[in-house]
């Protein structure tokens, strides 16, 4: 589904990603962990098409197409979804209107007519229930005055509505209390299927107790320095990141 090869990227002329290689197949959940500033969120931004990032080397294929060549909206229409670490508040744009517009544009791209008002409402109700999202929030302005937890839940609600094939969750767990974390995770677990995939970016192992990943990768200094199974996350929880930093340094010196 997603193949990243030797991806290098910079922001404001500072090299952030220094050769990422990663393959994600349908049905898989990948966790990307790493210390602060290692490039986790930058990877999410580059994949979603944030314009402040410049790709300097490497390639990314998404369903066989060149992802880096696409506008952010086309990436979304092709089935990529980024759950933002800091969802934006947009007063005056209602949540419903926003989702209707997004869904209509995605469907149009795929040659489908927009949903009838009734169908849309039904879908929206269904998904609200699935991810336990408050119906009142749906009718409010996009994220305006939402608590941190409500914003993150709105991201998961949007994810449920738009049904992407690949969802990237950028530190969705940050700022969530334990109840919100459980709700968000349950939502994601319900949405998991053999046809879609998830990349979960997180600093802590906590979220991975709820969403059990198939693979865990450690990002450090713009590179994936270690990959493993969910046990790697537990190891990191226990030992922290320092031993990996050490390993990475030794490896770099030996080259």
């Amino acid at each position: 589904m997603l193949i990243i090869k030797n991806l290098h990227a910079e922001v404001e002329e500072k090299q952030i990603l220094k050769g990422i290689n990663l393959e994600v197949k349908a049905g898989e959940v990948h966790a990307i962990m790493g210390p602060n500033g290692s490039g986790k969120s930058s990877l999410a931004s580059v994949l979603a098409g944030r314009e402040s990032y410049q790709v300097t080397q490497g390639e990314v294929k998404f369903h066989g197409k060149d992802l880096l060549d696409m506008s952010p909206e086309d990436r979304a229409r092709e089935g990529l979804f980024l759950a933002f670490q800091y969802p934006i508040e947009i007063p005056g744009v209602s949540n419903v209107n926003f989702l209707k517009t997004a869904l209509a544009e995605i469907r149009q791209y795929r040659g489908l007519p927009p949903l009838e008002a009734k169908e849309f409402l039904k879908l929206s109700r269904e998904k609200q229930k699935l991810v336990e999202f408050d119906a009142q929030l749906v009718n409010r302005s996009l994220n305006e005055g939402f608590s941190g937890g409500e914003k993150k839940r709105n991201e998961i609600f949007q994810l449920a509505m738009l049904e992407p094939s690949l969802a990237i969750l950028d530190e969705t767990d940050s700022g969530l209390d334990i109840d919100a974390l459980r709700i968000v995770s349950q939502g994601v677990n319900k949405l998991r299927s053999k046809d879609n995939a998830f990349i979960i970016i997180t600093h802590y192992q906590r979220l991975l107790e709820y969403i059990v990943p198939d693979f865990v990768h450690v990002l450090y200094n713009g590179r994936i320095v270690k990959s493993g199974t969910k046990d790697l996350a537990l190891e990191l929880e226990e030992k922290g990141y320092d031993w990996l930093k050490e390993e990475a340094r030794e490896k770099a010196e030996s080259i």
Binding site: P72, R75, R77, L82, I90, F98, E105
Partner: peptide, 8 residues
């Protein structure tokens, strides 16, 4: 960017 990242 937020809106475009949703396919708009």
């Amino acid at each position: 960017f937020y809106l475009r990242a949703r396919g708009i």
